[in-house]
């Protein structure tokens, strides 16, 4: 099956049905390995055992931004190439991206309270991630409240591309402004600033969360294709009535 064949929703559905069990199994295995490594990792010399929150918080933060980046690429697919699956991919990614952003915000808050003495501060990094969460909710509301999927897809694609401006703001907020949030420790120029004993479980947990995102996204895309088929059949039924 070539890449262009995937533009056909029926072929895409067949591929997803074959892939999903394998991806689900790989996700479970990656989480088993990641959690075992995370709970056997040494405590941080400054933060103690609270560093274990990092194994959730950092992958969730990466995937919250990855979700919007994926939707931005899909938005280009909708506006420029009018790919039949581009809007399906964008719409399916929005709730998953929102959930990962919420996970990032809540776990960060629970990490911040013992380390900073506050659940929340209006710091540039925290605020820009909160803006990302609100943008996800706005996009989901747009999809749910616009009856015509074609109109919703164009409006959502434009909103997504405008919202992508927030991604570099989130990434570089810790460099551009004085923030309480620590600077980048893994994705940075030079080597990661984390000891391998903590970095390795973090990367395995990131792989597990990425597999979870991919599995859920493909399953949600399958559901969205079915929902559009249902809509088409219901319109045919209304025409025949």
């Amino acid at each position: 099956m070539s890449f262009i064949d995937l533009a056909n929703p029926t072929r895409f559905l067949a591929l997803v049905q074959r892939l999903l069990p394998w991806l689900a199994a790989a996700t479970v295995l990656a989480f088993a390995a990641g959690l075992a490594m995370a709970f056997n990792a040494p405590d941080d010399y400054q933060q103690g055992a609270t560093v274990k929150i990092m194994f959730l918080h950092v992958p969730a933060a990466w995937l919250s931004m990855f979700g919007w980046a994926l939707m931005s690429m899909a938005a280009l697919g909708t506006l420029v190439w009018r790919h039949p699956l581009a809007d399906v991919a964008a719409k399916a990614a929005a709730p998953i991206g929102a959930a990962f952003t919420l996970m990032c915000l809540v776990t960060g808050s629970l990490w911040g309270r013992p380390m900073w003495g506050a659940f929340w501060v209006w710091d540039a990094r925290l605020t820009s991630v909160l803006v990302l969460f609100l943008m996800y909710l706005g996009l989901m509301a747009l999809y749910w409240t616009t009856e015509d999927p074609a109109r919703a897809s164009r409006a959502a694609a434009i909103l997504t591309l405008v919202g992508a401006i927030n991604l570099p703001v989130i990434k570089f907020s810790v460099d551009w402004w004085n923030t309480l949030h620590q600077p980048a420790s893994v994705i940075r120029l030079g080597a990661p600033a984390i000891h391998p004993a903590i970095l390795t479980p973090l990367l395995v947990m990131a792989l597990a969360f990425a597999l979870l995102f991919l599995t859920l996204h493909l399953a949600a895309m399958r559901n969205e294709i079915l929902r559009r088929r249902v809509r088409t059949l219901q319109l045919m039924k209304a025409d025949n009535a």
Partner: peptide
């Protein structure tokens, strides 16, 4: 396993992550 003085925050963070993951799987 000793999670130290801030065990409540660690357990709460993992509980939230599990709840959100289960909610996503159930939704799909």
């Amino acid at each position: 396993m000793n999670l130290g003085a801030h065990a409540d925050f660690i357990v709460a963070a993992y509980a939230v992550a599990i709840a959100l993951t289960v909610a996503l799987i159930a939704w799909v």
